[in-house]
């Protein structure tokens, strides 16, 4: 009894000594697991099938990539609200390129990367070297991308290019996972190509942030720009690179979004920037900079979409419940974060 109390005391002590990043990550992961487990127990049905979980991934692959980009700029102390607009622009440009100009899929990929790179370069330069507030720069970026999308083509349409449709329909089965359908046949669980790209991005960014010089300097610049400068970090270049990486990831995310919906439309990716910011925050990234974790961001996206699915399947079908529950969840996470930060003072 006494020993048990002692170990639990040690656990609390350990939690108390954790860094902000790790503690916030722990909270996010625990909340996600609790949420998904309770959905499985109380709502059953769809949540019990492995495919339900993979569908969350399929639908949010693009959001995961966009959120990774946002986490990186937020860790560096900036913001990028142009990602939704860039997504719309990428889907529309690729759709027009594939269908009206008989383009190849590889060309469309390069186009998507190029658009992301362009936005990243210009926004990064304006933010880092001309020292203009990132909010204003990326706000203008969002306006520009959204406007340009409708200038390219104002009507939404589905892409008919056969190579693209083939790629879009490609499904990767997950070994060992599956369920038996009503007819008694075994249906293996699958993920789309986008999910694999998204997971690769997550792993790559995780390694970059944790073990490379660049990744560490993102944290240093976000934590305290003045001391980062004193340490000999090139602050301007670091901020430029964070904005650039976010732009490129927005391009990739846009293409993955395109691969999922298969259409070009100005409404694609609407509100994605706010969803990505919300996911990053739920995942423990702080907008003040210096604190955050890519794995947390992944769980942030999963939590956000799980709560949306729970609301939808719990019979709260009135349209307003989704908005209100997501906001309530965001509110709780923010308050917890502020308490976590205050605990040290």
């Amino acid at each position: 009894m006494n020993k048990q109390a002692k170990t639990s005391g040690n656990v609390f002590k350990k939690i108390g000594q954790m860094t902000d990043s790790n503690l916030l990550l722990l909270i996010t992961v625990v909340v996600f697991i609790l949420m998904y487990a309770s959905a499985m127990i109380f709502l059953g049905k769809g949540f019990l099938k492995p495919q339900a979980f993979f569908n969350i991934l399929n639908e949010n692959a693009a959001l995961i990539i966009l959120s990774c980009g946002l986490s990186i700029v937020m860790i560096t102390g900036g913001i990028d609200i142009s990602v939704g607009g860039v997504t719309a622009l990428v889907t529309m440009s690729c759709a027009v390129y594939l269908d009206f100009h008989n383009g190849s899929v590889a060309g469309a990929m390069l186009l998507a990367l190029g658009i992301g790179l362009g936005f990243g370069l210009v926004q990064g330069y304006l933010v880092a070297y001309l020292d203009i507030q990132p909010f204003i720069v990326t706000l203008a970026g969002m306006f520009f991308a959204k406007g340009l999308t409708t200038i390219i083509n104002s009507n939404p349409f589905n892409v008919a290019n056969e190579h693209f449709v083939k790629l879009k329909e490609t499904r990767v089965t997950v070994p060992g996972m599956g369920s038996v359908n009503k007819l008694g046949n075994y249906v293996p669980a699958y993920v789309e190509i986008g999910v694999i790209i998204a997971l690769l991005v997550v792993i790559l960014m995780f390694f970059m942030l944790r073990w490379t010089k660049l990744g560490r300097s993102f944290y240093a610049v976000g934590g305290n720009r003045q001391s980062a400068l004193m340490l000999g970090i090139n602050v301007k270049r670091t901020r430029f690179l964070s904005q650039l990486i976010c732009g490129i990831l927005a391009g990739i995310g846009g293409f993955v979004y395109f691969l999922h919906v298969g259409s070009g439309a100005a409404t694609n990716g609407a509100g994605a920037e706010m969803n990505a910011i919300a996911s990053s925050i739920i995942g423990g990234t702080m907008l003040t900079g210096g604190v955050g974790n890519i794995i947390g961001t992944l769980f942030g996206v999963l939590s956000l979409s799980t709560i949306k699915n729970i609301v939808a399947s719990a019979g709260l079908d009135k349209a307003w419940w989704t908005g209100i529950t997501v906001a309530a969840m965001l509110c709780i996470f923010l308050v917890v974060q502020s308490i976590v930060v205050a605990r040290k003072k």
Binding site: M274, A278, T288, W321, T322, G323, A327, A328, L330, V335
Partner: peptide
């Protein structure tokens, strides 16, 4: 709670139209 304004108001931004 010392939450940055943009993040704090993101809550009402998400919920406002539903409310």
């Amino acid at each position: 709670f010392k939450i940055q304004p943009m993040v704090a108001t993101l809550i009402l931004f998400t919920a406002g139209r539903s409310i």
